[in-house]
Simulated assay, not measured.
Amino acid sequence: MKYPLPDNSSVLITGATGFTGRWLVDKLLNEKVRVKVIARPSRRAEELKALGCEVFEGQIYDPATVAAACRDIDYIIHIAAAFREAGISDDIYGKVHVDATKLLARAATAIPGFKRFVHVSTMGVHGHIENPPANEESPYGPGDLYQETKLEAELWLRDFAKKSGMSLAVIRPTGIYGPGDRRLLKVFKMAQWPVFPILGYGKCLYHLTHVEDLTNSFLLAATHPAAENEVFLCGDPEAISLVDMVGISAEVTGHMPKILRLPVTPFFWLGDLCELVCKPLKIEPPIYRRRVAFYTKDRSFDTSKIRTRLGFENVYSNRSGIIETVKWYQDKGWL
């Protein structure tokens, strides 16, 4: 592993049953470290137990669960997040992002010899980038409850670390993808249609980070002295347009759809209507405002800080990562 944790150390991972968290768990289980996770009872939690993780079953925002999990650990890598989906009430975002972060941080300060808290935030705290590329110091502009509560948690944690002396590093991932990802799968499925619709008439820039690179950044941030109390955007050196993503996908599939630009405002209205109808019924909306906004926000960043300060090296480029991911989707029969 490129950036290993010290042998015989103990790490607590939140969000371990998710895409990014599970990728990190699999990486660490091949090393001489103890892996603890907090997870709700589920099939995925049972899989983690079978793999050798010490699983603390419960909610990430439950004080008793957090207290039990935070005994005798050296590192916390806090990945857990609540994403917009059917059945999630608005208060869950605050509980998962803000309340859980406070519980974990306060527990960390009571652990003798605790080394570092790695907090996984999001590029979304910056919102739409008017004059790309943005960097870690660019203005905040969260556009929804997910991003607002992620920002609230990050700012509280940075202030808490400064006051308490807790060692902290913050990673703001750009768009996470790779084999196993399902959120960007929708884009690549659409790339197989005869016509690929793009809402709005902007550049539609998106900044990607392969999950292999992202999980490497967590481990580097956990151990590098220069990461102390710093914030790092993690992503490819360059943003990529949605059209170029479709073009790289076509190199694998042999299918390049016709690009069709559509006005975005009616889709915002439709998304609001779908959420209004589906949310009380706990049905996943076929379209919602955040998904529509994906097409309208340029997200392009200067991600050089993590490379210049910490010596981080990307394993994947946009092209190599997308090609690998699309091939994986094909192998799974998803495309």
Rank of each mutant, 00 (worst) to 15 (best):
M1V: 01
M1Y: 03
L5R: 00
D7N: 03
N8E: 05
S10Q: 06
L12P: 00
T14I: 01
G18W: 03
F19I: 01
R22C: 08
W23L: 08
D26L: 07
K32S: 10
V33Y: 04
V35Y: 02
K36T: 00
I38D: 03
I38V: 08
P41W: 04
S42E: 07
S42F: 03
R43T: 11
E47H: 08
E47R: 11
E47D: 15
L48R: 00
F56T: 03
G58N: 05
Y61H: 14
D62L: 03
A64L: 05
A64G: 02
A64K: 09
A68F: 02
A69E: 00
A69R: 01
D72Y: 04
D74V: 02
I77R: 01
H78M: 05
A80P: 03
A82Q: 14
A82E: 12
I88D: 06
D91I: 05
I92T: 10
Y93E: 01
K95Q: 15
D99H: 04
T101F: 06
L104M: 04
A107K: 02
A107Q: 07
A107I: 01
F114I: 01
H119P: 00
M123P: 05
H126N: 12
H126K: 08
H128Y: 11
H128F: 14
I129A: 12
P133C: 08
A134G: 15
E137T: 12
P139L: 14
G141I: 11
P142G: 10
Y146L: 12
E148V: 13
T149M: 14
A153D: 11
L157A: 13
D159H: 09
G165T: 08
G165Q: 08
S167P: 06
I176P: 03
D181A: 15
R182Y: 12
R183K: 11
R183P: 05
V187M: 14
P194C: 14
V195Y: 07
F196A: 07
F196R: 09
I198V: 14
K203R: 15
Y206V: 14
L208W: 11
D213Y: 09
L214N: 09
F218L: 08
A221E: 09
H224D: 15
H224N: 13
P225S: 09
A226P: 08
A226V: 10
A227E: 04
N229M: 14
E230R: 15
F232M: 01
F232H: 01
G235L: 04
E238Y: 07
E238V: 06
G254W: 04
G254I: 05
G254Y: 05
M256E: 10
M256Y: 14
L260N: 10
V264W: 10
P266S: 10
F267M: 08
W269C: 02
W269P: 00
D272R: 13
I287H: 05
I287F: 06
Y288F: 15
R290V: 12
V292H: 04
F294K: 03
T296K: 02
D302N: 12
S304L: 10
K305P: 12
I306E: 05
L310R: 12
G311H: 12
G311Q: 13
F312E: 04
N314I: 06
S317C: 10
S317R: 09
S320E: 15
W328V: 07
K332V: 11
W334F: 08
W334S: 02
